[in-house]
Design a protein around this nucleic acid. Structure first.
Lengths: 139, 139
DNA sequence: GTATCTGCAAAACATTTGCAATTCT
DNA sequence: AGAATTGCAAATGTTTTGCAGATAC
């Protein structure tokens, strides 16, 4: 995605597009690996040596608040962040620890309401044994 | 639930039923409010003055490992624990902060496999505005 | 020129660990 | 006696906060 588009996206959601913020959002767009704060910080610090972790925290908070990115809800204690335009769900393998994106059409993802409550965010997360590890076990 | 039944449940899952462990599991069975470690600790410390938080942590870890209880996956940084025999999902109100249990029949909760991955745990969590708060807003 | 953003250092928390004391079998 | 559980204190790791300096509108 071009920088212009990133800036446009931020303006749409009323986030001031500073240099650091653009770089952090760009990182999330390029790395669809559910990075932690530390991943983002380390990934950008060679390019932006003056970057501080506080700024990463601040920026992520703003982006989450403005619904540009979301927090991946897992049982881990370190937060992971996710940029995606498409609704999807997550699967984590108990064996290899891999966190997969699942772009699966589920009725529940389309649901806007449940028992009278208005749904604004869907967080669907499965844990188990992934395809790869199942094959390994069979061997 | 009677203490005997709690002990039976623990024996089934190969957890030694110590006094503290029974009390902690009992607390989780009685308080279906997704308590935090601190909630459990504070809730029991009047009854068990010698109880330490480390024991609460230890016990919860054992109970989760043996699939007697589960961790509620939210975006919060403090872990919440859940005892329930029935599969269900969670809804959190962005306004009042309430965390609701939703016992709703969803196809996805029955799914044992997705894209070749074996599902062992389903964590479904919605965020939005709850029924009550929606009514408040309309006023 | 005033708002906002940034970054350092310190503080605040939740959670884990090491180890000794206690308890259970 | 031997193994598992408990609990204190210290350590660890993540996230937040206060505040001063830099930057943007």
């Amino acid at each position: 995605m071009k920088q212009e588009e990133i800036i446009k996206k931020m303006e749409e959601r009323e986030v001031q597009a500073s240099f650091h913020r653009i770089k952090i959002l760009e990182y999330l767009m390029k790395h669809r690996t559910h990075p932690t704060v530390d991943d983002i910080y380390k990934g950008l610090s060679s390019e932006i040596p003056t970057l501080s972790k506080t700024t990463v925290y601040n920026t992520l908070k703003v982006l989450v608040d403005k619904n540009i990115i979301s927090i991946v809800t897992t049982e881990e204690d370190e937060a992971r962040y996710d940029y995606s335009e498409e609704m999807h769900l997550h699967f984590k393998c108990k064996q290899c620890g891999n966190l997969y994106d699942i772009f699966h059409k589920c009725e529940i993802l389309k649901q806007k309401e449940i028992e009278g409550h208005l749904i604004e965010e869907h967080h669907i997360y499965f844990r188990g044994i992934c395809k790869k590890c199942r094959k390994e076990i069979k061997k």
